[in-house]
Write a protein that binds this DNA or RNA. Structure first.
Length: 529
RNA sequence: GCCGGGGUAGCUCAGUUGGUCAGAGCGGCGGUCUCAUAAUCCGCAGGUCUGGGGUUCGAGUCCCCACCCCGGUACCA
């Protein structure tokens, strides 16, 4: 028996200081599409997400609320997962770095690095900002006129403390050799170039511990210190896979096939992280994908700005989900915002994309096809075994398109994939109806009408498969609109099976829910705001 | 400052190794069908491809200069 291909995918873990916004959601959806696609390709997918909880801000916030830090992070984790669940994110695991499994794995890992001789004690002194929970560089201090640029109302304090350092500088040559041997390690290309030139220029050792905190993970060889920020956070990818707690599971899960992260933290994942793993003797992940950001476009001024609480332009995912749907949410970001670059959000653009792509095309097709089947055949198209079900796609090389789509989706190029599905597959159905005019045929030639509708049913089957990673709910609704389940179970469909027409030896009939003889509209059209 | 990526129709963007490359989608305008969520389908876009030089038989597509935008420049969603 062949060993099933495994695919381990992760997203960045989030700070639970505030609720997730649409930019955070963008990353999770992009990773989710990949996870769902790989499952369809037959891989045993393990999809990890989580929260980064061992930060000083957590204890501060918890104290403000009069809560225990652990109770606070647990509640935030619940709220995050509530949003992810509403967005149909199909993660298999969700790690909180305050969990015991993470603590245990972290201690084992840092000890291994220590034993390898890559950790030494040094003194760090610098301008410390409590708000950022970090030391500021001289340049940043200058930028903020003596204060932290991000927290101009707070005083910076000069702090000097003993810290443990990780000998990152020693890994410069090994990292460069690794990049060169694995040209696809950093995606997209632009990020790779930045990192390579960064590492070529200079690689400094980094402080990895802090003194005097009780929240966080104690350094095993010096309990007065706790493990600091990145060293701790990055390790979630291995601790969640069982490192230090379940070695057997770790062996069969690690290495990760891809870390999906924001472009702002590329260097930690592409330089620091591989060096840490090399030091501890753990295999390196196969790929890091740094996605772009979603900016908020102001409807009136047309100005584009970063999303943030201080900007007052945060868009709550739940608001969009409630006003439209999770499917609409996913469709907008995956079709309008290139995953490798930046995208923008405005309610106007959202409504335009929704009306055009979902209401007028996909949803409307669902309605018109089902209505005709119900109206002319009572929903039962009868046996279609001898009917040519490829008539709707004459002029379209579906197998070739499917190959292109596999390539594009696999490379995180979602906007191109969706564009081609809509342009070549969805449009094909509208044009096929226009050419064959089944609503006229029904008056004179029922058999010919039946052939057309059976073709449109097969279009629905094909479309369901192609959009499954992007719009899982809509895809399933399409699949179950007819009795395709008896031909191919929904869980078993793959891109490769899209081109093989329906051929079950039983009547093809409508199975969609019907109210007063009509299907319920999938995507009601909305007025542009 | 240095490094990198860009400036193409109202908007978002495609444009391989230079020669139907002046395009797509959306919006807008006109027409059409009626199964459908006033949806679909058909037709219409006269954009100096940021500006100026240059190479070439021929340049959004290569070289130089200028202007503008964006990212990175180390421990920052």
């Amino acid at each position: 028996m062949d060993e099933q291909q495994r695919f381990y995918i992760t997203t960045a873990i989030d700070y639970p200081n505030s609720r997730p916004h649409i930019g955070t959601a963008f990353e999770k959806i992009g990773a989710d599409v990949q996870a769902r696609f790989r499952r369809m390709e037959g891989a045993a997918v393990h999809f990890l997400m989580g929260n980064d909880e061992n930060t000083i801000k957590v204890t501060i916030r918890a104290r403000e609320l009069g809560q225990d830090p652990k109770a606070y992070v647990d509640e935030m984790a619940r709220q995050f997962q509530e949003v992810w669940s509403a967005l149909e994110i199909s993660n298999d695991d969700f790690i909180q770095t305050s969990e015991e499994r993470h603590h245990v794995g972290c201690r084992k890992f840092i000890q291994a690095v220590f034993d390898a001789g890559d950790i030494y004690k040094g003194v760090y002194s610098g301008h410390y900002c409590v708000g950022c929970e970090s030391f500021k560089t001289e340049k940043e201090v200058a930028e903020g006129n003596g204060r932290c640029p991000n927290h101009p109302n707070a005083e910076l304090s000069m702090v000097e403390e003993e810290n443990y350092y990780f000998r990152l500088s020693a890994y410069r040559d090994r990292l460069l050799a690794f990049y060169s041997a694995n040209p696809d390690f950093i995606r997209p290309e632009s990020r790779r170039n930045e990192i390579v030139s960064l590492v070529e220029t200079e690689l400094r050792d980094v402080a990895i511990s802090r003194k005097g905190f009780t929240w966080g993970i104690p350094v095993p060889f010096d309990p007065e210190h706790t493990i600091y920020v990145w060293f701790d956070a990055l390790l979630n990818y291995v601790t969640a896979a069982g490192y230090g707690t379940d070695e057997a599971r770790f062996e069969r899960t690690w290495p990760a096939d891809v870390h999906v992260i924001g472009k702002d933290i590329t260097r930690f994942h592409c330089a620091l992280w591989p060096a840490m793993l090399m030091s501890a003797g753990v295999p390196l992940p196969r790929k890091v994908f740094g996605h772009g950001f979603v900016y908020r476009k102001n409807e009136e001024s047309g100005e584009v700005a970063k999303i943030g609480k201080s900007m007052g332009n945060v868009v709550e995912p739940m608001d969009l989900i409630n006003d439209f749907s999770a499917e609409a949410f996913r469709y907008y970001f995956m079709s309008q915002c290139p995953f490798s670059g930046d995208g923008e959000f405005s309610f106007e653009r959202f409504a335009d994309a929704y009306n055009s792509g979902l209401a007028n095309n996909l949803g409307n097709l669902y309605s018109r096809i089902l209505t005709m089947c119900l109206k002319y055949f009572g929903g039962d198209l009868g046996e279609v075994g001898e009917v040519d079900l490829t008539a709707w796609r004459r002029g379209l090389d579906l197998p070739a398109l499917v190959e292109t789509l596999r390539d594009r989706v696999g490379a995180f190029d979602y906007t191109t994939a969706l564009q081609r599905i809509w342009l070549e597959v969805v449009d094909a159905a509208n044009k096929y109806i226009q050419e064959t005019q089944p609503f006229k045929l029904a008056k004179t030639d029922l058999e010919a009408t039946r052939v057309v509708l059976a073709n449109l049913a097969d279009w629905m089957r094909v479309t369901a498969i192609l959009i499954k990673p992007f719009l899982p709910k809509t895809a399933e609704t399409f699949h179950r609109a007819f009795n395709f389940e008896s031909h191919q179970p929904w869980e078993a469909v793959s891109y490769g099976s899209a081109s093989r027409p329906y051929s079950a030896g039983q009547p093809l009939r409508v199975a969609a829910p019907v109210v007063e003889g009509k299907p319920t509209p999938l995507f009601p059209k909305v007025e542009a705001r």
